[in-house]
Amino acid sequence: MKTNDLILQTITKIAIFIILAFSLHLFFAGHYTPGGGFIGGLMTAAALVLLLLAFDAKTVKKIFPFDFIKVAALGLLIAVLTGMGAFLFDVPFLTHTFGYFDIPILGHTGLATAVLFDIGVYLVVIGVTMTIIQTIGEDE
């Protein structure tokens, strides 16, 4: 008997945007308030898991055609490169800096290199979580 998942799928389509927006908010808020790469990545992965629950694995693969192991590898690469970048300025490994810039739309904004490192953490968390869930879900 084919089940009719109309209510779940409709609400998923709405809720997914709230979850993704909130995960991005947590990610960028991480420098001054609770949040950061780890919890942001976990919440993005949770949004993808909600998609997996409401639709099937093939549909999710069509929407997000990423190899999530490669996403994790890319995140590690970014994290290591931001650490290595400190060598260019003759300071120890993983030294971070920040500065204030006037950006056209956002105005006076503080930008820190720690955000680049956080992007690495974010991608690793998404990649590892989704790889675990997809490998568990797919063995038939």
């Binding site: 209510i7 779940l8 609400i11 709405i14 809720a15 709230i18 927006a21 909130f22 908010h25």
Partner: peptide, 15 residues
């Protein structure tokens, strides 16, 4: 965040 939480609970809890 509280507004988002209110909307989110209101939308998802009945589902």
């Amino acid at each position: 965040r509280l507004v988002l939480g209110i909307i989110f609970v209101f939308v998802t809890a009945p589902v």
